[in-house]
Nucleic acid binder design. Structure first.
Lengths: 142, 142
DNA sequence: ATGAGTGCAAAGTGTTTGCAACTAT
DNA sequence: ATAGTTGCAAACACTTTGCACTCAT
């Protein structure tokens, strides 16, 4: 039984074929797939699971904390299974040119967070959005 | 003649009814409207300008540097007329609960940028994405 | 048994396209 | 004159909905 599945049971949530399929697809895909990419993978790996179920399930799993989502530039949302330990959590940056997603240390924005809080009371949630920029490779080619 | 219009002429770009309409709508709206909101405003203020023109024009103006765009959480892109002076540029954060957009000092992420560059060569472009979090009001109500 | 979860199909949303006609330069 | 812009309508990708049915518990 996968860790994600165990998390579901712990929270007294039902473990259904659809949910298993989504979890499996996420594990299989790795990285930071969008909802649409998860949908495609689910359809391949576990035919019969409906599109709508994938979207509903991703949302549910995100609410339950089993999966994490990050908003990317250009309007997409990326999902992945939640980190097993806090130490494995991370922030994201996405290359505006090639689309590559880079992981960043989780404490990178701690100072910024503190400064913004002090300045106006806004609470920044650094993990919720990917920073934008250009990756090393693309910068080199520029 | 508006400043934005002057910028167009400077770059030898045509000043058309559609472009004037988009610039006018942006000036009228202020803040950080999405493309769809600009479309609505254009349709109101300058009927006859087509939806597709608004989207194409926003993209063109963004490329020319006449307007600036910021990617927001939840998949939308917000536009505004480019700041007349560098000192008026700013970063953005969006409240995940009420959607309010807060302006932040332009140098807020300078340190982060430097650290990320040193660590892996990724060039962060802080102005291109809005940070996410909760504004002071919504934090209070939580 | 019972309510949470699902498939289905359909309708959103917001955005983009190919093309012929138009117009700012 | 001639390229760049536009209107149009249609297609587009992605996501969400209402409802009846099914299945995990």
């Amino acid at each position: 039984m996968s860790y994600a599945e165990a998390q579901l049971r712990e929270q007294a949530q039902r473990v259904t074929a659809g949910r298993r399929a989504v979890i499996r697809a996420l594990a299989h895909l790795g990285g930071h797939p969008t909802a649409a990419q998860v949908e495609t993978a689910v359809t391949e790996l576990s035919p019969g699971v409906h599109r709508a179920t994938v979207y509903r399930t991703l949302e549910t799993l995100a609410t339950l904390g089993v999966v994490t989502h990050v908003h990317m530039t250009h309007g997409t949302t990326a999902y992945h299974l939640a980190a097993r330990t806090a130490s494995r959590a991370h922030l994201h940056a996405r290359c505006r040119l090639c689309g590559a997603v880079v992981d960043l240390p989780p404490d990178l924005l701690d100072d910024v967070r503190e400064r913004v809080r002090a300045a106006g009371g806004f609470e920044v949630d650094p993990a919720h959005v990917a920073l934008s920029g250009t990756c090393a490779d693309c910068t080199r080619l520029d």
